[in-house]
């Protein structure tokens, strides 16, 4: 009992740092001033460490949020905007999926294409979120050349009593930050798969035809009709 009380008391007085820590931070500040500060861990986060951190955070967030698990498109949208999109280069993902049609598209068409593609992916995968619960993320060793700026991060979602779900990411370094630009689920890459889907539609009706068929699909299957404004 007394030990517990001591702990509580110490915790409430936390702001006063122990001497050693104060000295340490002073030394760090001095080091920073001299220009050889050890880089903070998050500034040079490796791509697999980033996936591990964000992935674990997402599993926990989704597992505890009933509206997301139900597939409530508004809640899923918010989660994706806040926790996922900062680490995604979605423009690159859409551009690679559109292939040569991206070059032909006007800025306005590109924006529409990105919106509809995003809605389609969200709509498709939000249905699988109800399964999220007691899974754990297992990272596989990263095999990349030293100093690479384009890597494949491999991981698995481990679930008790089932086969693990393979989940890989293509990531590249933009301005010092690692961004995801393709996702592989169970061996199937999104960009590779949508490249021929997009090409097939665009060959029939041009970029506008492609955007229209994506929008139609989203309207047909989406519960929150065209939820995300352009």
């Amino acid at each position: 009992m007394t030990a517990y009380h001591h702990f509580r008391l110490a915790a409430t007085r936390a702001p006063r740092l122990p001497l050693r820590r104060r000295l340490m931070s002073a030394a760090l500040a001095a080091g920073a001033g001299l220009g050889f500060a050890p880089a903070p861990a998050f500034a040079e986060e490796s791509p697999d460490a980033l996936i591990e951190r964000v992935g674990n955070e997402l599993i926990q967030l989704i597992g505890n949020d009933e509206s997301i698990k139900r597939g409530d498109i508004g809640a899923v949208n918010r989660l994706v905007d806040e926790k996922v999109m900062p680490y995604v280069n979605f423009e690159r993902m859409t551009a690679l999926s559109a292939g040569r049609w991206w070059r032909e598209a006007t800025p306005e068409q590109r924006k529409q294409l990105m919106t509809e593609f995003r809605n389609m992916l969200l709509r498709t995968y939000s249905g699988a979120l109800e399964q999220v619960g007691n899974q754990t993320l297992r990272m596989k060793p990263l095999r990349a050349e030293p100093g690479a700026t384009d890597v494949i991060v491999r991981s698995e979602i481990v679930q008790p009593g089932r086969e693990p779900i393979q989940l890989d990411y293509r990531m590249h370094k933009v301005g010092g930050n690692w961004k995801i630009y393709d996702l592989n689920i169970l061996g199937i890459w999104i960009v590779e798969t949508y490249r021929s889907q997009f090409n097939q539609e665009a060959q029939r009706g041009g970029v506008d035809g492609l955007i229209r068929s994506l929008a139609d699909k989203n309207r047909e299957f989406g519960p929150g009709k065209g939820s995300q404004g352009t």
Partner: peptide, 28 residues
């Protein structure tokens, strides 16, 4: 297909200088 895209994302040139000096991230 992406010739114009890249530079928009790479805003901070300072970051780039830092990258060159820091040890490679991916080394295992």
């Amino acid at each position: 297909y992406l010739e114009e895209e890249d530079d928009a994302g790479a805003q901070a040139t300072g970051d780039r200088a830092g990258d060159a000096a820091s040890p490679p991230v991916n080394e295992r």
